[in-house]
Amino acid sequence: MANKLTLEQVRAKSTNRIAGLSDTQRKAAELLIDFAYACGVPIVITQGLRTIDEQNGLYAQGRTKPGQIVTNARGGYSYHNFGVAIDFALLLPDGKNVSWDMQRDGDGDGIADWDEVVAEARRIGWNWGGDWRSFKDYPHFEMTFGLSTADYRAGKRPSHTQLNTAMAKIDALKSNKTEDDEMTTEEKTEIAKQFKALQDRVIALESANKLAKVPTWAEQACINAKAAGVLDTANDGSYDFYRLVTILDRAGVFKTKGGAA
């Protein structure tokens, strides 16, 4: 199911909440919003930088204040207090309500939306609270560069090398995304459909010119086409058939969601 909200509308929902993050984490949060949207999963960042007083207020919930316990961290003991962590929720199509349903498949691709967001976050460099051994925090991501909250309280910060490496990765991912966006998913799908129809016709017309094996120069293109679900088999094709497969592969038609063919 296509997104009803534009990317600009989705981005705007999180602008204020990510404004207080450290530079690298803010860029990483922006990229996560974009990548999740590209997967058909709009998200909103529900929490970014959190003050010490806000943290203490949350810690009191379920202890000295009504409500359920939502954190084990006092003020100064959460990565949110240092602008290096975010929480997120799935943004529903109305653009107003959110969901924390980890089984939801709003885009109908057979993959839980939550899992898609987590996969994209890991690719960017976020660590997920759902991987913690105790007190799992499923909406939580953090990018700490190996520093503890005690380190942050003591004034330690990531090195320039660490920050530059992280930013270079973010910039590279953004660049790859821009290149991929030159051909939309819908365009690639339509080309793939046309190719399948052409494939059937070529097979019918050139059955007398079948090659005994796939040419070496066309092997990877055929592998990519099969992985994309365009080919059932690459055997018994003609020279022109394999040439066409190779041309389409180089055009990026068979590129998978992960970015690599």
Results as ranks from 00 to 15, higher is better:
Asp87Trp: 04
Asp151Lys: 11
Ile191Trp: 10
Asp171Arg: 06
Ala154Thr: 02
Asn81Gly: 12
Thr165Cys: 12
Gly76Ser: 03
Ala73Gln: 11
Ala28Trp: 06
Lys136Tyr: 02
Lys213Thr: 00
Leu49Tyr: 12
Phe195Asp: 12
Thr51Ser: 14
Asp180Pro: 08
Leu205Pro: 05
Gly258Glu: 14
Glu206Pro: 03
Thr184Lys: 10
Glu8Lys: 03
His140Cys: 02
Asp181Gly: 03
Ile247His: 07
Asp171Met: 11
Ala228Tyr: 05
Leu205Asp: 14
Thr189Arg: 15
Gly76Asn: 05
Pro158Ser: 05
Ala166Tyr: 07
Lys174Asn: 13
Gln199Phe: 13
Gln162Val: 03
His160Cys: 13
Asp171Trp: 09
His80Lys: 01
Lys136Glu: 11
Pro215Cys: 03
Arg50Lys: 12
Val84Leu: 08
Thr144Lys: 10
Lys65Thr: 15
Gly237His: 03
Gly40Gln: 02
Val253Tyr: 03
Gln61Cys: 08
Thr246Ala: 01
Ser134Tyr: 11
Gly252Leu: 01
Gly129Ala: 07
Thr24Ile: 07
Tyr239Gly: 12
Arg104Pro: 00
Lys169Met: 12
Ala119Val: 14
Ala261Arg: 09
Thr233Ala: 02
Tyr242Gly: 09
Ile223Thr: 09
Ser99Met: 07
Leu163Val: 07
Leu31Glu: 01
Lys257Thr: 15
Ala166Pro: 05
Ala192His: 08
Tyr152Asn: 06
Thr24Trp: 13
